[in-house]
């Protein structure tokens, strides 16, 4: 290999015209991904984007890397096989709330528990966009859509709570409009060894415009969003004058005018899973919604475990020998004289 050439954002853009609706949050995520990748130092040919079906899943077509636009919900399965075939690759899964939490829910939980070293970016717009506007597994109860004209009666799934339940080793959240934060979260996700799970609040301008308005509106966002920082107390608000304190097992919003920062809950990325779960349960309007890295812990990856078993087998049995394998059973010989040798 020659000296790696410094890549730029342009190197990651394919020649295909981007066909999302004007104003779609997906554009910002694509731009941020293309901007972030050159900083990772991974050769372009070692990067693979795999998606399922849905608006977000068109993503790989726009990346000048290896990629597969697969079938609905199944991107994690292809990524798993690919990583086991070639653990050197940097694999990104692009998915949506319908793709990963509805039709692909099973695969999501299993890739997370296996801790395969891939990065999952879930575009959560709380709606089915490509099928033109039905409620999704993250749509709020009461949400009126074409398939729920009187309001959805279903309880929504909380993607990050699901991730904590699956023993995920890296869990984060960011917002399509906060590009700087998004870039940093992508960098952290890429740096994590094991499955990284990133939820992006993404706006569907056509079928669910403003679903995340409280988190993106300049007037209100600082009061509804809490930016997590490892080792730092949970403080938020335009004036950074509010915090989260635990009252027994119950969290509460407190004013820093009344409470010392020492009493606040302190974020710990490799703390107990219950902390990440607890953070994932914080929902507006009662609480600000955390963004940033909820959890980042070290565990052996699936492919490390699998490949080390191969090395172990080679070490204990020697490299595979077909001759030996074929004869690894009771054998007997039929000779021309028709005497029967035992073996």
């Amino acid at each position: 290999m020659s000296e790696p050439i410094k890549l730029t954002r342009k190197d990651f853009a394919s020649d295909q015209a981007v066909r999302w609706c004007p104003g779609c949050g997906d554009y910002a995520i694509l731009a941020q991904m293309q901007k972030t990748l050159p900083d990772l130092g991974v050769p372009k040919e070692n990067i693979v984007f795999i998606s399922g079906i849905g608006c977000s899943s068109r993503f790989p077509y726009y990346m000048n890397t290896y990629g597969i636009h697969s079938i609905h919900g199944r991107a994690p399965t292809l990524a798993s096989g690919l990583k086991l075939a070639n653990p050197e690759l940097s694999v990104w899964i692009i998915t949506g709330d319908g793709d990963s939490l509805s039709i692909g829910g099973n695969h999501l939980i299993h890739i997370l528990r296996r801790n395969i070293d891939v990065n999952i970016v879930l575009f959560n717009n709380r709606i089915y966009g490509l099928t033109k506007g039905q409620y999704s597994p993250t749509s709020l109860q009461g949400h009126k859509t074409k398939s729920s004209p009187m309001g959805s009666v279903e309880q929504p799934l909380n993607p990050l709570s699901v991730a904590v339940g699956t023993e995920a080793t890296f869990i984060a959240r960011t917002i399509d409009t906060n590009v700087k934060h998004m870039g940093e979260v992508f960098r952290r996700a890429a740096a994590h060894k094991g499955t990284s799970f990133v939820e992006v609040y993404q706006n569907c301008v056509i079928f669910n415009d403003g679903a995340w308005g409280y988190a993106t509106d300049n007037q209100t966002k600082d009061d509804h969003i809490l930016e997590l920082e490892d080792g730092q107390p949970l403080i938020f608000g335009k004036e950074r004058d509010k915090g989260i304190r635990l009252n027994g097992l119950i969290p509460e919003v407190v004013s820093l005018a009344d409470v010392s920062p020492n009493e606040l809950l302190v974020h710990d990325e490799d703390g107990p899973a219950s902390l990440a779960f607890f953070l994932s349960r914080m929902r507006q309007p009662a609480f600000p919604e955390p963004i940033g890295v909820f959890r980042d812990i070290k565990k052996i990856t699936y492919e490390e475990g699998a490949i080390s078993q191969i090395s172990e087998a080679v070490a204990s049995r020697g490299k595979g020998d077909l001759h030996k394998l074929f004869h690894a059973s009771d054998t007997w010989e039929v000779t021309p004289e028709h005497t029967n040798g035992h073996n």
Binding site: L82, L84, A85, A306
Partner: peptide, 23 residues
């Protein structure tokens, strides 16, 4: 490299991924 998948669909999907990877 054996992969006991979570279901039949995942078994097939992983096989496709591995083939893409050159196995």
């Amino acid at each position: 490299r054996t992969f006991q998948a979570e279901d039949e669909i995942a078994a097939m999907g992983s096989t496709i991924g591995a083939a893409f990877g050159g196995a």
